[in-house]
């Protein structure tokens, strides 16, 4: 019962904030909506036995990525909403409608086809468990990710530096 109430609260937060990211004009407020969204998601991750992923979600997304977004918004001084006025044309209502249709179709599909949650070990999402699989079965993807991050670092520096 308590779990359901918590889920519904978090789901409401996610729904409202994901609409907010898109509908709000001010980019700083969009970013704040997204932060709230990630928080609620982290709570849901706990429900799905993913403690480690929930902590990483907050550290990486809320603690680093969104701070980077805010930093860029402030650096380019895009805070004033009038800067990039969104033109009201036919595209907007059509897109909203299509998005709604997408959700309805998917929801229908999900309700028709889906099975139940399987029983699982209590320590499924702990660092020990995730780490064990990350460094055995998934070691090549993991190492590839590190190369990707290295490339990203080099790319970001090349991009941001005026003169190398």
């Amino acid at each position: 019962m308590f779990g359901q109430i918590l889920f519904i609260t978090m789901a409401l937060v996610i729904v409202v904030t994901s609409i907010g990211v898109v509908a709000v004009r001010n980019p700083v407020r969009s970013a704040l909506n997204l932060v709230a969204n990630f928080f609620a998601l982290a709570v849901l991750y706990l429900f799905l036995y993913a403690q480690f992923v929930a902590a990483v979600q907050i550290i990486v997304y809320a603690g680093a990525i969104m701070v980077l977004f805010l930093f860029t918004i402030m650096l380019l001084n895009l805070g004033s909403p009038s800067e990039l006025s969104e033109r009201g044309d036919l595209k907007r209502p059509v897109t909203w409608g299509l998005a709604l249709l997408f959700v309805i179709v998917l929801a229908g599909g999900i309700f028709v086809r889906l099975g139940e949650a399987q029983p699982t070990a209590d320590d499924l999402g702990t660092v020990q468990m995730v780490g064990k699989f990350l460094f055995t079965d998934w070691v090549y993807p993991f190492e590839l990710t590190s190369i990707l991050l290295l490339i990203a670092i080099v790319g970001a520096i090349v991009m941001a530096k005026r003169r190398l």
């Binding site: 403690q51 480690f52 902590a55 907050i58 550290i59 809320a62 603690g63 680093a64 701070v67 660092v127």
Partner: peptide, 15 residues
């Protein structure tokens, strides 16, 4: 069991 990660998360949020 993720104590120190929780701490890192919270301190990174103060910004």
């Amino acid at each position: 069991n993720i104590g120190i990660l929780f701490l890192l998360a919270m301190t990174s949020l103060t910004v």
